[in-house]
């Protein structure tokens, strides 16, 4: 269907707005609203463009209500956009042609599609029939998934007897039996403990290596994104803030680096000296007898480090990029302050 150089996902000018009924308090307003409704427009996605190439794993970041889930639902065919052009493997998703549905999957954390009270394997069998997977392929894929996800005997039990993490693993297996070429993962690790998060993450990575499936993933856990996605897309208030690789995101949005110096214990207080050397009060995070921590603008890092190294007896020096979570917080904080995007509403419509 699609040739190799063509993007698997192509989105141009995607907008999605909702009409939300407005309500006022009071009995009269409430009875009045029974007959006529006042509505207000809420912009969930305010026009975004993006393309994803075959085999990429892309992280989709943004605070609650940024429009991530809406975008994912449009891409998987559940939502009809207000305007814009979307192609996934050449299909228009919301027409939901069965050929398209058989080649993609949408997995949502904390939502189970498998039957609660019958053994998992029976639900799998149903999915096999619905997605028309030939039996021999089904058998090989099932054993492959059982092994990759370490499912073992779990598939003989009903979902209700499984833990949250085990359910999610089964959910993954059930959704991948038809070997989709495009995966939409909405918060796939939400609510899971750290070990289980790591296993799911490892699985997504290996699945992508084995099948070359294009993957779009939203997550609140930066660890997911750091481990899986070389490329991230940040949206906020329905607009694209950043599209590029993860390290670029850090250098673009975090103008500071953290410098930590371990010193030989000095007899006199070094505080005055450090102040003098750094030259700016605000860059100093803490000064102790054995450790100095600074937060210095990117361009000043080399100068400050050199001055400190020559003047103090330094045992160890670490220059760090800030943690990705901090950067993300920073991104959303600054854009909220600047108010440039404030006209878009942020209600989460999903």
């Amino acid at each position: 269907m699609t040739s190799h150089d063509e993007p698997v996902i192509a989105v141009r000018g995607l907008r999605k707005t909702y009409q939300v009924p407005e309500r006022e308090g009071g009995l009269r307003a409430a009875t009045g609203s029974l007959f006529r409704r006042r509505t207000r427009e809420v912009i969930a996605v305010a026009g975004i463009d993006l393309t994803v190439a075959s085999g990429e794993i892309v992280g989709f970041l943004g605070p609650n209500g940024a429009g991530k889930t809406t975008t994912l639902k449009v891409l998987s065919g559940l939502l009809h956009p207000t305007s814009g052009e979307v192609r996934v493997m050449g299909y228009v998703p919301w027409e939901r042609p069965s050929a398209f549905l058989r080649r993609m999957t949408l997995i949502m954390g904390q939502r189970n599609q498998l039957s609660w009270d019958i053994p998992v394997i029976d639900s799998f069998e149903l999915n096999r029939a619905i997605f028309q997977v030939p039996r021999d392929e089904y058998r090989t894929r099932l054993s492959e998934l059982v092994e990759l996800l370490d499912l073992g005997d779990l598939i003989r039990k009903p979902i209700r007897n499984l833990s949250l993490g085990e359910r999610m693993k089964c959910e993954f297996a059930g959704s991948l039996l038809h070997r989709p070429e495009v995966l939409f993962l909405d918060e796939p690790t939400i609510g899971l403990d750290v070990t289980m998060q790591r296993r799911i993450r490892g699985f997504i990575e290996r699945y992508n290596e084995r099948t070359g499936a294009t993957t779009l993933l939203t997550s609140h856990y930066m660890a997911d994104v750091e481990a899986l996605c070389r490329r991230v897309i940040v949206i906020h208030h329905g607009r694209l803030l950043y599209d590029g690789d993860l390290s670029g995101l850090v250098s673009r949005f975090s103008p500071y680096k953290t410098i930590v110096l371990d010193l030989e214990p000095a007899e006199d207080s070094i505080e005055g000296l450090v102040h003098e050397l750094v030259g700016n009060e605000r860059w100093i995070v803490s000064v102790g007898q054995e450790r100095v921590t600074l937060r210095v603008p990117r361009s000043e890092t080399t100068g400050v480090t050199t001055r400190l190294l020559t003047a103090l007896s330094v045992i160890d020096l670490v220059v760090e990029e800030p943690a990705i979570d901090e950067v993300i917080d920073l991104v959303f904080a600054t854009t909220a302050e600047s108010g440039e995007l404030a006209e878009a509403s942020t209600d989460d419509p999903s």
Partner: peptide, 16 residues
């Protein structure tokens, strides 16, 4: 394909 899907659905549904 539809017949296959029905057969599988019957089986799971009756179990359920």
């Amino acid at each position: 394909g539809l017949r296959d899907a029905y057969r599988a659905k019957f089986r799971t549904e009756i179990a359920l």
